[in-house]
Design a protein around this nucleic acid. Structure first.
Lengths: 250, 250
DNA sequence: CGATCAATTGAGTGTGTTCAATGTCAGTGG
DNA sequence: CCACTGACATTGAACACACTCAATTGATCG
């Protein structure tokens, strides 16, 4: 929270298109994860010339939609985004969540259209990188190219998680998801306890984990009975982080 | 495990490098899918300089193993390869199959080690592309770089298949898998019929589809009862390809 | 306050799993 | 040639877990 509103979360968001809402690099929370991190000043200027900061996107607003022409990658400066597809029967299927510092749109590389809807889950600021210019720039900045290719890691990690998740029970999947949030530093830790304000709905989580909302709810209830978590709406508390880590890795 | 000093493949068994076994580009069955396809003669020479053809790998032999140092990508010239991981309890989990023309090792980009075992399923010839040289070459050949990035498509497609496969029944997954084989042109079609000699074991298929071998067997039996396939060991016949296509897309 | 949607809880069902037995086939050696 | 072996594949029966359908509660907003 870099604004003057201390501690308080702004429930109401100002108009989405206000020109003064954009974030400068200096106030971007994703600096350490930025493709530009570590580049020379001159290289950074080249990157900076092609980027465009946008935001805030209010919850529910799309950053891009399926079938939109693919033209850019996006770095999330602040906020959370889900990507989802819609089946023929209208069912939404959540394919992933993206947090501060994550790069969005990689899934569309090699295609001329995006293949997901990308929807902000909370007030979200992004930085747009036109892809063709980025790819051209890569030729002159090998380090940048390398960085982009590194992002294959993210996709690989997702695949791995999904494939192995198929063999886990509902409760194990939930714990795995919670640990993912821990690693994303979304969790606020202190001592051995932690708490978390999840930006996505339980339904989104269930879809992402390949469960029905009812099954997720039951899994959360069981974990609560076991004393591993405390489940209060969008706030989830972790009375014993070590126990969770132990439970996942057993 | 293995102390490697040169760029050579490890393995107790020396890489099948008998000079007479390797495939020339002229006799490679993957020409149309090769990263070099469509490049200028000069560019092609640059690519050719850094590649090394190897083979045949007999069934069961590893092309690379998990924890081997990542150093190269591989194009399959001829044959079939599975990639798999091994859980702590010793269970094998098949993460993917790769056929003629497919590129192997992309999953390891951005890592310093391979994250799978890659095992030949039938006599297999490959073409090795040292990754660091390939990446350097990309800077001078934008078209090549673009081609590499395109390969993100493959990974994306895999993810999509897996995620949506979670919501399919065992029989639907099997049919989806069979259609994948059709698209890979592994199937021998004539008229409305087709037959297929699967290079992988049923157990591998089951693992890949997230099923138990028993469940796969039952699904195949049901599909046979329905008249959609004929299941004779490693040979699978398709009496009515159109019906299969219709069944999958319903 | 009622309306609406998300989340939870309950009861019953179904699909894939587990465990176990049998069947098939290739390789081996008597 | 046949019995033996081991890996793979198939089939059966009982079970477990997540799903489906349905009702209830809770939260948010007009």
């Amino acid at each position: 929270m870099n604004s003057k509103t201390t501690g308080r979360r702004n429930a109401e968001v100002p108009a989405p298109s206000s020109a003064q809402g954009e974030l400068e690099c200096g106030e971007c929370e994703a600096r350490s994860h930025c493709p530009g991190a570590g580049l020379s000043d001159e290289q950074l200027r080249g990157l900076h010339r092609i980027t465009q900061s946008r935001g805030p996107y209010p919850p529910g607003q799309a950053i891009f939609r399926i079938e939109d022409c693919f033209g850019a990658l996006f770095v999330i400066q602040k906020g959370t985004v889900k990507i989802e597809t819609t089946s023929r029967d209208g069912t939404h299927l959540v394919d992933g969540f993206f947090f501060r510092g994550d790069m969005l749109g990689l899934e569309a590389i090699g295609d001329d259209r995006y293949r997901h809807d990308a929807v902000a889950l909370e007030p979200t600021w992004i930085c747009e990188l036109p892809y063709d210019q980025l790819e051209s720039l890569c030729s002159f900045v090998p380090r940048l190219q390398h960085r982009i290719l590194l992002l294959a890691q993210k996709i690989r990690h997702t695949t791995h998680t999904i494939m192995h998740g198929r063999y886990l029970s509902a409760e194990q999947r939930v714990l795995q998801f919670l640990r993912m949030l821990c690693q994303k530093q979304i969790i606020q830790q202190r001592d051995n306890q932690g708490s978390l304000l999840i930006p996505m709905s339980k339904g989104d989580i269930a879809s992402y984990l390949g469960l029905r909302p009812e099954s997720l709810s039951r899994a959360l209830s069981k974990l609560q009975e076991a004393g591993l978590i405390r489940n209060h709406g969008r706030e989830i508390e972790f009375p014993d982080l070590i126990a969770i880590r132990r439970t996942i890795c057993d």
